[in-house]
């Protein structure tokens, strides 16, 4: 146990200030402290990606980041990318294309995919498979996840074209 420190992070647009031990893992800050339970814990070793969130514009596995490292950052979780009345195209696409089964990997999968589509708006299947390789799914075999991401990309690109 060590002395608590003062931290400030912004999660899904909301500023949060608190005292915590520096060794607290970001996933626990989110899940235990802030009650944001969308990101999940699957391995605690950065392999499975169930805890993936976006930190300062980058996909990050929050199970291996200390809260001290996240001080002052802006974080987006699955809870921050859509609402029940206005789902993110990825949320719609995963439902439509059976891109999930048990749902445990889904929040990490979708938040990672949302970043991937910012990095590569029109990815090939190979780019999707490579770009999503940090997120493990034990149920779907990925085929429908790939399909969901392709469908969301198409939807987002056509919406963007319509807006331009």
């Amino acid at each position: 146990m060590s002395k608590k420190q003062h931290y400030k992070i912004t999660v899904n647009g909301k500023e949060e200030e608190f005292l915590a031990e520096p060794r607290e893992l970001l996933i626990h800050t989110l899940r235990e402290r802030l009650k944001i339970t969308g990101p999940h814990i699957g391995c605690e070793t950065s392999h499975c990606g169930a805890c993936t969130v976006t930190v300062n514009g980058k996909s990050v596995k929050s199970c291996t980041v200390f809260v001290a490292q996240a001080d002052g950052t802006e974080i987006t979780t699955i809870e921050g990318i859509g609402s029940p009345d206005a789902l993110h195209p990825l949320q719609e696409a995963f439902k439509e294309h059976h891109g999930l089964q048990c749902g445990f990997c889904t929040p990490g999968m979708i938040i990672r995919a949302s970043k991937l589509l910012e990095e590569i708006p029109n990815p090939s299947e190979e780019e999707i498979r490579f770009g999503m390789a940090g997120n493990i799914c034990r149920c779907t075999g990925y085929q429908n996840i790939v399909k969901s991401i392709q469908a969301a990309a198409a939807e987002m690109n056509s919406a963007k074209e319509a807006a331009e």
Binding site: K95, H98, F104
Partner: peptide, 19 residues
């Protein structure tokens, strides 16, 4: 039929035991 479970799972609103 599309799955009725998916609305909560895709929005991070699943209710797993650790939640």
């Amino acid at each position: 039929r599309k799955r009725v479970e998916d609305a909560r799972f895709t929005q991070g609103k699943g209710n797993y035991v650790d939640d």
